[in-house]
């Protein structure tokens, strides 16, 4: 069922992966299209999450609201789902980021309900 919800992101043209991760960086569930989520990519997602949470704490122990890394071809967005869980989206640069963040927010409760 969780995959079905994550699949809503894949139908957005250019989205290549939607991954639910725990706060320790461990992957819980993922769905992908056109890419392989190998160890390297899992490490990337995990590193960005863990580092960004640590960096956010430099803001007076602030919580991480969103982290967004963009390259010329792809980008990675990670946003919180619930206290311990985060959703990471990997997409091509042509995707409307506003739409992705909207879908992240819209599907947040549904995803959390399956965690």
């Amino acid at each position: 069922m969780l995959k079905e919800i994550l699949n809503k992101f894949l139908v957005l043209q250019g989205v290549q992966a939607a991954v639910v991760i725990e706060e320790n960086g461990e992957m819980i569930e993922s769905i992908k299209s056109g890419i392989t989520i190998d160890k390297n990519l899992a490490d990337v997602i995990s590193t960005v999450l863990l580092d960004s949470r640590a960096t956010a704490h430099l803001f007076g122990n602030a919580s991480l609201s969103m982290v967004f890394i963009e390259y010329t071809d792809n980008f990675l967005i990670i946003g919180p789902l619930a206290e311990e869980f985060y959703l990471a989206i990997i997409a091509k640069n042509s995707v409307n980021i506003g739409q992705i963040t909207y879908e992240m927010k819209k599907n947040q409760d549904a995803i959390v309900s399956y965690l």
Binding site: T47, V48, S52, T55, F59, S63, Y71, T72, N74
Partner: peptide, 28 residues
């Protein structure tokens, strides 16, 4: 600089072109 460290860490593992930016959003 902490954010820069993160981008440097992941650089070997991503093949997504050149780094454009990293945005960290907190409530503030």
């Amino acid at each position: 600089r902490s954010m820069l460290v993160t981008t440097n860490k992941i650089a070997p593992n991503v093949d997504w072109g050149s780094f454009v930016h990293m945005t960290l959003q907190v409530p503030e």
